[in-house]
């Protein structure tokens, strides 16, 4: 099982943080362009899903799966968007994303008055803790090609 990469967007669609662990293919564009494309797609999927849904939607969690990877989107009520790409068999990703929010983002960004909430995250402590939490999760087991 593998965790590929993580995007964190704020409520204005700005990329706050990006990191990857096992990413074997690059998109061939700059990170900025890629982030814009990603946010645009998430935005469209969300409104598409809300429109065609036959039942009332309550949860801020959404995934899609291709035959190679799964994209997991967790959105907090404050509209922060955590997007984690994993392989298609990964389990417990929703819990992992919630853990990243409560134990990494809130602890090391929100509690840190030097972190501007509207700017990309530069805190090294945040990066280190994020890495730690992800690597401890059951879904993470690196298998380099």
């Amino acid at each position: 099982m593998t965790i590929h990469n993580l995007y964190l967007f704020d409520r204005d669609g700005q990329l706050l943080y990006y990191t990857d662990w096992n990413r074997k293919k690059q998109s061939g564009m700059t990170r900025d362009e890629e982030a814009k494309l990603m946010y645009g797609m998430i935005f469209s999927i969300k409104s598409f899903v809300a429109k065609v849904s036959p039942v009332d939607l309550k949860e801020g969690y959404l995934t899609y799966t291709t035959n190679k990877y799964r994209l997991n989107l967790y959105e907090t009520p404050s509209r922060l968007k955590f997007i984690l790409n994993t392989d298609i068999h990964a389990q417990g990703i929703k819990e992992l994303l919630q853990q990243i929010y409560t134990q990494v983002y809130v602890e090391y960004v929100v509690y840190n008055p030097l972190c501007n909430l509207k700017k990309p995250i530069e805190s090294e402590l945040f990066a280190a803790k994020l890495d730690e939490v992800v690597k401890q999760s059951a879904a993470y087991a690196s298998r380099p090609a």
Binding site: T102, Y105, V106, V110
Partner: peptide
């Protein structure tokens, strides 16, 4: 602005 995140997480 910050407290809300703590509240949501807690």
């Amino acid at each position: 602005m910050r407290l809300i995140e703590d509240f949501l997480a807690r």
